[in-house]
Design a protein around this nucleic acid. Sequence first.
DNA 1: TAATTTCCGACAAATCCAGTCGGAATACTA
DNA 2: TAGTATTCCGACTGGATTTGTCGGAAATTA
Lengths: 145, 145
Amino acid sequence: MLTMKAKYALRALTTLARHGHAPLPAHQLAAQARVPESFLEVILAELRRAGYVSSKRGLQGGHQLAKAPEQIGLGDLIRAIDGPLAPIRCASLTAYRACSDCPDPEACATRVLMTDVRNAIADVLDRRTLRDQLLLESHRGDLAA
Amino acid sequence: MLTMKAKYALRALTTLARHGHAPLPAHQLAAQARVPESFLEVILAELRRAGYVSSKRGLQGGHQLAKAPEQIGLGDLIRAIDGPLAPIRCASLTAYRACSDCPDPEACATRVLMTDVRNAIADVLDRRTLRDQLLLESHRGDLAA
DNA sequence: TAATTTCCGACAAATCCAGTCGGAATACTA
DNA sequence: TAGTATTCCGACTGGATTTGTCGGAAATTA
């Protein structure tokens, strides 16, 4: 499941990317990305901790991307905000944990199935970066114009 | 995300399938599938409503599969228990709903991305049936023996 | 009738989600 | 130095969802 938080994070990052290098204050970012301002604060804190944005306080301050869009993998981004991609922990590569009620994870058919699902998800997400999202939007805009 | 409920449902159905045609009482099913007995009741009710199991009351009663395992698609099963496969409603084929905060779903890059994810998930799940899960387990057993 | 079993709805505890709020710290400008 | 704009931080809250439990009614069979 994609939470609001991750959806907002994605929008915030693409907004920052489009805005260029100058720092963008949170209240403007909130308006442009359509994210509730006080919730955006929470999200920016996580993005900062994860190294995706850097922030500057005071007048002329604001937030900016800390990496180039093509270096922001969407899989990792969503992992940072929403946790593991796998539908169930025992199918996660990056955050494996056996089910407490599972006598033998090696033999678990559910785990095998869900591992296939998690790989399918990761295949999509880990092949794309923020840059792809930007191109998607601008391409759309071009067509409409 | 795969909830406990869906995980239990999957285990309950494979257990019923392995047990054959005779009805299996809930308390035995609970033990064999390792599902809390009173929660299993709730789950069986949903499976019955969705047409996957049929039940018989009274002495010699119990639950049995209402379809052949190869006719129980895992995608549909999980949809019946956990809801849409898509990570976000606006990316669902079977249960589409636009985000309330989205000015133009057609142009939404997040929706495009998540549609790819949902298709990847559905590709895995809609190609498999309960029979595949059965084979997975028995094959495993063979190897271990 | 007695035993067994499903069936049903209400309830409840725990966890997670989506956000808010108040204020402290920091930086810039005049 | 004062004032203003801004980030930064943690605590809090209300609601939804998950993961169950419980008590009893209805049905079936022996």
